[in-house]
Amino acid sequence: MTIAVAAQPRTGRALVTDTEFDTLAAFCADEYGLERCVADRVIDQALAFVYVMGTTGEGATMAPSQLVDPGWHTLILHTGWYADWCREQFGYFLHHQPNSKVRTRGLMTSVVDRLRAAGFEVDEQLWGTAAECNSPACCGDGPCC
């Protein structure tokens, strides 16, 4: 008899070392005025987002949410590290080509679906797809909910 064990969703955080994650999250918190617990969530989702774009080649049809975008900017601002990480993960440098003007709930739902399809945990409050999401504060109960 074979027992199937459901795989746990992976995290963006697992794509980098603990030291790299801490450096990125601390920078994101400081640079964008976020509480560290929020910056941790943002960086986690940004890493997953960039990884999915890079491994699928579908970056032109994806966009980060307004709340996840500072995470991608944080990655890019660590240019040397980001360039090396991109080459290691998907073999090329993934450029940031802003398309924030097309952020819609439909697009964010599509991005969330792609993240899930790639096996990543999704923080729906950061993507504006949570049923209880209360934009622009997102969750309405404070930044760490």
Score class of each variant (00 low, 15 high):
residue 145 C to K: 11
residue 143 P to E: 12
residue 124 E to C: 09
residue 74 T to I: 02
residue 18 D to L: 08
residue 114 R to C: 00
residue 22 D to L: 04
residue 65 S to D: 02
residue 141 D to L: 12
residue 68 V to S: 03
residue 119 G to V: 11
residue 77 L to E: 15
residue 125 Q to S: 10
residue 75 L to W: 01
residue 35 E to T: 10
residue 3 I to P: 02
residue 75 L to Y: 04
residue 68 V to G: 06
residue 20 E to M: 10
residue 7 A to M: 09
residue 69 D to E: 14
residue 27 F to W: 11
residue 74 T to G: 07
residue 103 R to A: 05
residue 48 A to D: 08
residue 96 H to S: 01
residue 141 D to W: 11
residue 107 L to H: 08
residue 85 W to F: 14
residue 107 L to G: 04
residue 71 G to M: 05
residue 107 L to F: 01
residue 97 Q to D: 14
residue 119 G to A: 11
residue 71 G to P: 09
residue 75 L to T: 00
residue 48 A to T: 02
residue 51 Y to Q: 03
residue 24 L to N: 05
residue 80 G to H: 03
residue 60 A to E: 12
residue 105 R to H: 10
residue 19 T to V: 15
residue 70 P to T: 11
residue 75 L to G: 00
residue 125 Q to L: 14
residue 94 L to D: 01
residue 4 A to I: 15
residue 42 V to L: 06
residue 42 V to H: 02
residue 56 T to G: 05
residue 124 E to D: 15
residue 86 C to K: 07
residue 7 A to G: 05
residue 72 W to S: 04
residue 133 C to L: 00
residue 48 A to L: 00
residue 136 P to F: 02
residue 133 C to G: 13
residue 112 V to L: 01
residue 86 C to F: 08
residue 23 T to Q: 14
residue 93 F to D: 03
residue 51 Y to S: 13
residue 5 V to N: 08
residue 60 A to Y: 07
residue 84 D to S: 12
residue 21 F to Y: 13
residue 139 C to Y: 13
residue 47 L to E: 03
residue 90 F to E: 09
residue 10 R to W: 04
residue 82 Y to N: 02
residue 36 R to Q: 15
residue 144 C to N: 12
residue 137 A to S: 15
residue 26 A to L: 07
residue 16 V to H: 10
residue 108 M to K: 02
residue 84 D to Y: 06
residue 35 E to C: 07
residue 84 D to V: 08
residue 78 H to Q: 06
residue 114 R to N: 05
residue 140 G to K: 09
residue 90 F to W: 09
residue 56 T to L: 07
residue 83 A to F: 00
residue 56 T to K: 01
residue 42 V to E: 06
residue 121 E to K: 11
residue 60 A to G: 03
residue 22 D to T: 15
residue 136 P to W: 10
residue 17 T to C: 10
residue 41 R to Q: 14
residue 31 E to N: 11
residue 64 P to R: 06
residue 73 H to C: 02
residue 59 G to H: 13
residue 40 D to W: 04
residue 94 L to W: 00
residue 129 T to P: 06
residue 40 D to C: 09
residue 12 G to L: 02
residue 129 T to S: 00
residue 50 V to S: 03
residue 6 A to Q: 15
residue 66 Q to I: 08
residue 11 T to F: 06
residue 64 P to S: 13
residue 9 P to Y: 13
residue 94 L to P: 06
residue 130 A to N: 12
residue 92 Y to W: 00
residue 101 K to H: 10
residue 85 W to M: 03
residue 14 A to L: 08
residue 124 E to M: 02
residue 95 H to P: 00
residue 145 C to N: 07
residue 108 M to I: 04
residue 44 D to F: 06
residue 124 E to G: 14
residue 87 R to S: 10
residue 112 V to R: 12
residue 26 A to V: 07
residue 118 A to R: 12
residue 88 E to D: 15
residue 107 L to Y: 02
residue 120 F to H: 09
residue 25 A to Y: 03
residue 76 I to R: 12
residue 14 A to Y: 03
residue 42 V to N: 01
residue 24 L to G: 06
residue 75 L to S: 01
residue 71 G to S: 00
residue 33 G to N: 14
residue 86 C to N: 11
residue 131 A to Y: 06
residue 43 I to G: 05
residue 62 M to I: 04
residue 70 P to I: 07
residue 125 Q to D: 13
residue 76 I to T: 09
residue 123 D to W: 01
residue 55 T to S: 13
residue 120 F to K: 06
residue 68 V to Y: 03
residue 81 W to F: 14
residue 4 A to C: 09
residue 72 W to H: 05
residue 136 P to M: 03
residue 102 V to S: 05
residue 6 A to R: 13
residue 14 A to P: 12
residue 76 I to V: 14
